[in-house]
């Protein structure tokens, strides 16, 4: 089985525009429930914000919350997240999750267009159907 068969696609994908503010990022995170949001520049992936990024951001700032909420998405999280290709196998995906100790991987094509997002839970469920 391939990554493209299990990845979250279409409106399942958590996405914000890079100009959107952190408050929008958090709302999108809550709506999609994958613990991460793809930061987009048009149809291209510009970054990734995860729960861990938010935790580290809160611990590293002294800004009042309303100020923090106004931070543009492009300034939050990773600008060069680990990514995976849609043709990768589930085993290759699992190896990446293990190697990079992450929970989510954006799925992109050769031009950095976002195709989907794969979460470790969904990958494990596909690998071990009884779970």
């Amino acid at each position: 089985m391939l990554i493209k068969e299990i990845m979250a696609t279409g409106t399942e994908r958590p996405m914000v525009n890079e100009d959107d503010c952190l408050r929008d990022v958090l709302d999108e995170m809550n709506r999609k429930g994958l613990g991460a949001v793809c930061v987009m520049c048009g149809e291209f992936l510009a970054g990734l914000v995860t729960d861990g990024d938010i935790r580290r951001l809160i611990l590293s700032t002294q800004k009042p919350l309303p100020h923090l909420f106004m931070t543009p998405a492009r300034e939050v999280g990773s600008k060069a997240p680990k990514k995976i290709r849609p043709e990768a196998t589930l085993q290759e995906g699992l190896a990446m999750f293990e190697k990079y100790q992450c929970w989510v991987l954006p799925v992109i094509d050769g031009s950095n267009r976002l195709l989907g997002l794969v979460h470790l839970h969904r990958l494990l469920k596909a690998l071990i159907p009884s779970t």
Partner: peptide, 11 residues
């Protein structure tokens, strides 16, 4: 207005 919320006005 807070100064950070001026981002909304500019946008």
């Amino acid at each position: 207005m807070s100064p950070w919320n001026m981002r909304n006005s500019a946008q």
